[in-house]
């Protein structure tokens, strides 16, 4: 086991996949010298050449559209968007083209690309650099949506996403770049898409979350444990397809479900999971998500948006009362 950050783990995963498959390449702004926003591409241009780590103009639509074209033409591109907020400049290329090409053309082609677009609050980067639009993409037929929450997952899930023959929206959380965790460098296997991880075991309630909010949910579970309440905490890891079996089995056992995400609650993906569980199992469900406001800049305003552990714990207690 090696300790490394979430960013370093992503770099390792990409490096391994690029070494393994010469068809894998990445394109985006400032990938070469800078090595990406968090060093997740650091040194890879030197190692693999500038036709595999391609520095692009500030042209998001073409970065995404070119990835679609390059995927249709037989390679496995990674379109780096830096922020999911900037990927919004390329939604048509991803949603109208990449997600639908295989279907519209009757299965003649595949789009094995990764649209890499970090989400979330990093602290003080405000309304146009902090959004979590994962539900938009989970809503779009044709797309796989992945949200790693740990360094090991950011290596293993990235590897699986690169090997996936479908277009994958890969959403690292910007607040996790510096998170340190254990990574088994000897185990080169990808982590399968669509398989959740149970990170706390419990019997009173099921808490489902993803990305940076998983850590907050775990913190809440630890606080609840001190009060004699045991929570099953599930990190979904892949939002689409989400691990129904893991969530249903747990919720059937605990009899209650709370979904927590940083993204805005209204229209958030938590609603989908809660509704499915309620329809299938008839157990009580609840959601916690951001209020429907843009992410503000100033500390107390940003704090007012966040879902903290004490709020999660309080919600759980209300459900159990």
């Amino acid at each position: 086991m090696t300790e490394m950050t979430y960013a370093q783990a992503a770099r390792l995963g990409l490096q391994e996949e690029m070494a393994r498959d010469p068809l894998v390449w990445a394109l985006g702004e400032d990938l070469g010298f800078e090595g990406g926003m968090a060093g997740q591409y650091k040194g890879l241009q030197a190692e693999f050449g500038d036709d595999r780590i391609v520095d692009t103009p500030i042209s998001e639509s073409t970065i995404m559209g070119a990835a679609v074209g390059a995927a249709l033409a037989g390679t496995r591109p990674i379109a780096e968007m830096r922020f999911s907020d900037f990927a919004m400049c390329a939604v048509s290329e991803l949603v109208n083209q990449g997600a639908k090409a295989r279907y519209m053309f009757g299965g003649q082609g595949r789009v094995p690309m990764v649209a890499r677009m970090p989400i979330g609050i990093r602290g003080g980067i405000a309304a146009q650099h902090s959004q979590s639009p994962e539900a938009w993409y989970a809503h779009t037929p044709g797309l796989v949506v992945v949200t790693p929450a740990t360094p090991a997952d950011n290596r293993g899930l990235l590897k699986a996403s690169i090997r996936c023959d479908d277009p994958v929206v890969y959403m690292e959380h910007k607040g996790l770049w510096g998170m340190v965790g254990e990574v088994d460098e000897n185990d080169q296997e990808p982590i399968p898409l669509g398989v959740a991880a149970t990170i706390r075991s419990g019997s009173d309630i099921t808490i489902v979350s993803w990305a940076a909010q998983v850590g907050v949910a775990a913190e809440a579970a630890d606080a609840l444990a001190a009060d004699g309440i045991s929570a099953d905490v599930i990190d979904l890891r892949t939002l689409y397809p989400w691990d129904r079996d893991a969530v249903m089995n747990s919720a059937a056992r605990t009899g209650r479900l709370l979904v927590v995400h940083e993204a805005v609650r209204v229209g958030g993906f938590g609603g989908e999971i809660a509704a499915e569980v309620a329809e299938t199992l008839g157990v009580p469900v609840a959601r916690l998500g951001g209020e429907r406001i843009p992410i503000p800049f100033s500390i107390p305003l940003e704090e007012a948006y966040k879902i903290k552990a004490d709020r999660i714990a309080a919600r759980v207690k209300r459900m159990l009362a």
Binding site: F86, A127, H129, F297, S298, P300
Partner: peptide, 23 residues
């Protein structure tokens, strides 16, 4: 009032319709 920060400074009273975080 702290909602925007550096990349979202605006002053409509002098026609300044806003900085922008998106190139």
């Amino acid at each position: 009032n702290g909602k925007g920060g550096s990349m979202h400074i605006a002053d409509f009273s002098v026609g300044m319709l806003g900085a922008n975080g998106v190139i």
